[in-house]
């Protein structure tokens, strides 16, 4: 068994010089968001149409369905240095493609366990269901994740390898 408690501790410790560097550069969290075209992407558009303001830290990748999102995309995102990942799709039952979001949910629950097993801080990976009518909800999700990621600090998970 892997001692998860221990690995988590390792995660939080950031070398002192890293912190200095960060504060000098005014580090801003970079968040990548995979949004399904029919619900969450439309919800994000609605936030825009309704002029609901949220932090400018998120970069959206549009995909047809949350079912399209391969767990590898999430790992890859953390590997190349995104500070957090958001995966968002239609509410369960609302999937434009009937059942894609259920598959997504199942896959990500397995991924969740895997992350814990290999000791990656789960706080950097976020899932939400946002419908096309929920502009405010989308903005809230982004506000929340940005705040959380700011507290976690820069993503150094894969830094040691480089």
């Amino acid at each position: 068994m892997v001692d998860t408690k221990k690995t988590e501790e390792v995660q939080v410790i950031i070398p002192a010089n890293e912190i200095d560097k960060v504060s000098d550069e005014k580090w801003e969290p970079k968040i990548i968001a995979f949004l399904c075209n029919w619900c969450s992407y439309a919800g994000a558009d609605l936030a825009g149409v309704s002029r609901i303001q949220y932090p400018p830290n998120v970069r959206v990748v549009r995909v047809p369905c949350s079912g399209r999102i391969n767990p590898l995309f999430i790992l890859k995102s953390l590997q190349v240095g995104w500070d957090a990942v958001l995966v968002s799709g239609c509410h369960p039952g609302d999937c434009h493609y009937i059942s894609g979001n259920y598959y997504a949910r199942r896959k990500f629950s397995v991924l969740d366990d895997l992350l814990e097993f290999i000791g990656i801080d789960k706080g950097r990976i976020n899932f939400s269901w946002v419908s096309a009518a929920e502009g405010e909800a989308f903005a809230k999700v982004i506000r929340k994740i940005t705040k959380k990621t700011r507290q976690l600090g820069p993503n150094t998970i894969f830094k040691e390898d480089q």
């Binding site: 970079k30 990548i32 990748v61 995909v63 047809p64 369905c65 079912g67 399209r68 999102i69 391969n70 767990p71 995309f73 890859k76 995102s77 190349v80 240095g81 995104w82 434009h96 493609y97 059942s99 894609g100 598959y103 896959k107």
Partner: peptide, 30 residues
């Protein structure tokens, strides 16, 4: 929808217009 593609264990299925390669390239643009 691409559900088959992300479920394929051997990466044999890809979704045209949203291929794995294209998405990885976008992810790399951090």
């Amino acid at each position: 929808c691409g559900a088959c593609s992300s479920s394929c264990r051997g990466s044999a299925i890809d979704l045209l217009g949203f291929t794995n390669e294209e998405i990885y390239l976008v992810i790399n643009e951090v």
